[in-house]
Design a protein around this nucleic acid. Sequence first.
RNA 1: UGAGCAGACUGUGUGGCAGCGCGGCUUUAUGCCGUGAGGAAAGUCCGAGCAUCACAGGGCAGGGUAGCUGCUAACGGCAGCCGGAGGCGACUCUAGGGAAAGUGCAACAGAAAAUUACCGCCGCUUUAUGCGGUAAGGAUGAAAAGGCGAGGUAAGAGCUCACCAGCGGGCCGGGAACGGCCCGGCUGUGUAAACCCUACCUGAUGCAACACCGACACGGAUGGAUUCGUUGGCCCGACGGUCCGGACUGGUGGCAGGAGCAGGACGGCGACGUCCUGACGAGAUAGAUUGUCACACUCGACAGAACUCGGCUUAUAGGUCUGGUCACCUU
RNA 2: GGAGAAGUACUCAAGUUGGUGAAGAGGCGCCCCUGCUAAGGGCGUAGGUCGGGUAACCGGCGCGGGAGUUCGAGUCUCCCCUUCUCCG
Length: 116
Amino acid sequence: MDRLEKKKKRLTLNCEFKRAYYKGSYKAAPLLITYVLKNRKSCTRYGITTSKKVGNAVMRNRARRVIRAAARQALEGVPKGYDIVFVARAATPAAKSQEIYAVMKKQLDKLLLPKG
RNA sequence: UGAGCAGACUGUGUGGCAGCGCGGCUUUAUGCCGUGAGGAAAGUCCGAGCAUCACAGGGCAGGGUAGCUGCUAACGGCAGCCGGAGGCGACUCUAGGGAAAGUGCAACAGAAAAUUACCGCCGCUUUAUGCGGUAAGGAUGAAAAGGCGAGGUAAGAGCUCACCAGCGGGCCGGGAACGGCCCGGCUGUGUAAACCCUACCUGAUGCAACACCGACACGGAUGGAUUCGUUGGCCCGACGGUCCGGACUGGUGGCAGGAGCAGGACGGCGACGUCCUGACGAGAUAGAUUGUCACACUCGACAGAACUCGGCUUAUAGGUCUGGUCACCUU
RNA sequence: GGAGAAGUACUCAAGUUGGUGAAGAGGCGCCCCUGCUAAGGGCGUAGGUCGGGUAACCGGCGCGGGAGUUCGAGUCUCCCCUUCUCCG
């Protein structure tokens, strides 16, 4: 049941990712792409996509870890009720998590503020 | 000292802060403790365990392997040896059964590609480019009917002889592949990673297998002389009476203590085997095993478990150790 | 994770008992037609790379890459690379 609570904060199903891609608003940068979509739930969930373009399995793991470390810091001030998808790019594994955090914070502010 | 050969190992380390998966204890707002990728985890090329179908029956077809002996649970793996090729040498490489069971193919060139006579050479004659003999020479080709030398002959020819290669038989050595010696006859083209033959092996599907729990509820098919399903490329046989197909979503098991690892003794040339002792510490399910900072050095390669083992193959910066070989120098 | 399929010119692609010089179409280049284009018609076409030559041209390599069998490989065998499909 502890696991179930954590699972609520992550996106798992493929259709949830697809909904964010088609209906959500996004912001792109060389290090990271962020999709944001409003859900009707009481919590904020996020998911990470690392395609084969990023590199081999070691590079993809590195990209996921760096993004997850940045997201733990960046999602502190995000209001509830959003689905967020982070997509890694080719330059992501070579970056440090602080650089990712700076880009992520900027993108989240731009995407979340206009709506309020 | 230089060059070169073979084998084995290692493959950043330490600390601070923050964080993740699993297990355990407190007791659950939480906190603490333990532990957490590889030699290839990769490619999925082989062999098994395990699971279901009958713990998978008979046969055909299909597939695989190919010197000998051994090791192994098994193997297309490994070890030793034999034959062949390469290297001065240490050593390395080797799909290495059968073409005399049969069939097919060998383009172009060439007379002819497997019972060969185009030119040439020799003989005879009805002097006709006729008949016969011949495979030494020419020419073609990747390949031309054992090679080369001498004798011999009308010209020639294993026709005869010596040597070499190949085939058959005998003797000796060896466990076998095979090696050595002697004798005989005088020949067979190449291709089996072409079909095939011989010997041996091989049922299929794969953890998304499969078992259990919960929830959802749609459609189809038949019959006793048959039909459907298990069932796969086919036939037979066996089993079932209700079965099959579609489709939805979670959870638990499978799931990690093993043909395993380390050390020692003994047997064996070796692969390996036997015995004793010791330790055991990834197990996720959108997928954890890290982020960041500092210091040190030789500035860190290839690269991430997904049911589990034994191999093979491929990728790999740098470093360490061991044992042979060759050349030069010194004693 | 597991099971398969395919790579031939810029693109789509044919190529079977292994045999000379690797079809065809689109595209491209040149010419005709037109005042000029488009369309149409005709011709050409490894259209890549390396070497030689003033040039015409000649020769080698080249069917994803590398080895092997064979006299000879797009085709047969082995090992890699890339792309795609299926299984919840």
